[in-house]
C-alpha cells in the first residue's frame, strides 16, 4: 500500500514535471530570442568599449547617458511623457522630445537632466468636439552653433494632411520660422542639420517615378530658398549628420528596400561626392559623428537579430575605417532617436 502511494505520487509528479518542463523550454526560448524586453537596468549596463565624451540615447521612454564605463538614466518616462530624440547644444545642455499620446514637445535640460525647461506647447486645450487635430508634433531637434533651435513640426495642417516641415527659432526669440514646404501627404521634411553657412540639410520625402515614397537629402540656404536635392530618389537616403568641420556627411540609404546601410560622402556646401558604404547587411539607423569627427556611432540590431543597440565605427572619416564594433548589450534602444554625442 505504501509503495503504491509512492508510485502514484511519483506518476503525478512526473506529469506535473512534463507540464512545467514544457513551460520552462518556452521560457528559455523566449530568453534566447531577442526583441521582447529582457533588458538590463541602466545602472547595470557597462559598455563593451569605452568611448570618449557622453552619448545620450533613448530607451523605453527614458533618456540614458553613456559616459566612461557606465550608463545612467538622466530622464525617466512617466505616465504621460516618453523621452526621445536628444540633441546636444553648444553649451552642453540637452534638447529632447517629450512624446505624449497625441502631441510632443521640446524640452531643454542640463547635461544631467536637471533644470528641465519646456520650449514648446503643442498639446491642445482639453478636448471638446473635433479639437484633436489642434495638437501638434515636434520632432528631431537640433541645436545650431549659433544657438538657433531646429526641428520638424507639423504645421500648417489642413484636413487629413499632416506633414512635418523644417522650422527654426533663434535662441533668444520664441518666434519660429518655417523653412520648408513639404510635399503634401508624404510625411514631410524631417531631421534638420544646421550648416555653418546658415543653411540646413534635411531629409525630404517625395513621390518617386514609380509612385513610391522615397527620401532625399535636401539643401536650403534660407527660408525662401526652394532648395535642391543632394541625393536621388533611387538612393532613398535620410538621417544626415554633418561631421565637425562640415566637409563630410554621414547618412542612411535604403535604395527603396528593407535594408538600411550607413554611407559617408564628401560635402562641399553645395553638392555631394561619391558615397562610401561603411556598414551594410543590417538595419542601420542614425549615424552620428564623434565630437572630434574621428568616428561614427550608429544604431543597429545586436547580432542574431536582437534589440537595436549602439555600434561604433572608428576611422569613419578616413580611407580605411575599421569594421563595426558593438558598444552596448542588454539594452533595447529606440532606433527612431539619434544618439547625441557630447564632448
Amino acid at each position: 500500500m505504501g509503495l503504491t502511494t509512492v508510485l502514484v505520487a511519483l506518476m503525478a509528479g512526473f506529469g506535473l514535471a512534463v507540464y512545467t518542463g514544457l513551460g520552462l523550454v518556452r521560457h528559455l526560448h523566449d530568453g534566447a530570442t531577442a526583441g521582447a524586453g529582457g533588458t538590463t537596468d541602466p545602472v547595470d549596463l557597462h559598455p563593451l568599449l569605452r568611448l570618449p565624451g557622453s552619448i545620450y540615447l533613448a530607451a523605453g521612454g527614458d533618456l540614458l547617458r553613456l559616459r566612461g564605463d557606465g550608463v545612467t538614466a538622466v530622464l525617466n518616462h512617466d505616465g504621460s511623457r516618453r523621452w526621445m530624440q536628444p540633441a546636444v547644444a553648444a553649451d552642453g545642455s540637452v534638447v529632447v522630445v517629450a512624446r505624449s499620446a497625441e502631441s510632443s514637445d521640446l524640452y531643454r535640460s542640463a547635461a544631467d537632466g536637471g533644470g528641465l525647461q519646456r520650449l514648446t506647447d503643442d498639446a491642445a486645450a482639453p478636448l471638446h468636439g473635433g479639437s484633436l487635430e489642434r495638437n501638434h508634433w515636434a520632432f528631431h531637434p537640433r541645436a545650431g552653433a549659433d544657438g538657433r533651435l531646429w526641428y520638424s513640426y507639423d504645421a500648417p495642417k489642413a484636413g487629413f494632411r499632416v506633414d512635418l516641415a523644417v522650422w527654426s527659432r533663434p535662441a533668444a526669440n520664441a518666434v519660429a520660422t518655417r523653412w520648408s514646404s513639404p510635399v503634401g501627404y508624404t510625411g514631410g521634411d524631417v531631421e534638420p542639420v544646421p550648416l555653418p553657412s546658415g543653411g540646413v540639410v534635411y531629409a525630404r520625402y517625395v513621390i518617386g517615378a514609380g509612385s513610391e515614397i522615397r527620401s532625399q537629402l535636401w539643401l536650403q540656404t534660407g527660408p525662401r530658398d526652394p532648395g535642391h536635392a543632394l541625393t536621388t530618389t533611387d538612393d532613398d537616403c535620410s538621417q544626415p549628420d554633418l561631421a565637425p568641420g562640415g566637409g563630410t556627411l554621414a547618412m542612411v540609404c535604403t535604395q527603396g528596400g528593407q535594408g538600411a546601410r550607413v554611407e559617408v560622402v564628401s560635402f562641399d556646401g553645395r553638392t555631394l561626392g561619391t558615397p562610401r558604404v561603411l556598414a551594410a547587411g543590417s538595419l542601420c539607423a542614425f549615424p552620428t559623428w564623434a565630437p572630434d569627427g574621428s568616428a561614427l556611432a550608429y544604431l543597429a540590431p545586436a547580432p542574431g537579430g536582437g534589440d537595436f543597440t549602439l555600434w561604433w565605427l572608428a576611422g569613419a572619416a578616413g580611407a580605411t575605417p575599421s569594421g563595426p564594433r558593438q558598444v552596448l548589450e542588454g539594452v533595447a534602444l529606440d532606433a527612431t532617436s539619434r544618439p547625441a554625442w557630447a564632448p
Partner: peptide, 29 residues
C-alpha cells in the same frame, strides 16, 4: 486618435505595426 510613426529602421510593437499598416489619411497614394 492621433498617430505618428517615425521614419527609418526601427523595432515595432504590435500596436505601432498596426498603426503603420492601417493608417491611410496622410498618404498621397
Amino acid at each position: 486618435e492621433r498617430v505618428a510613426v517615425m521614419p527609418g529602421a526601427q523595432h515595432m510593437s504590435g500596436l505601432v505595426a498596426m498603426e503603420y499598416v492601417r493608417s491611410r489619411h496622410d498618404d498621397l497614394r
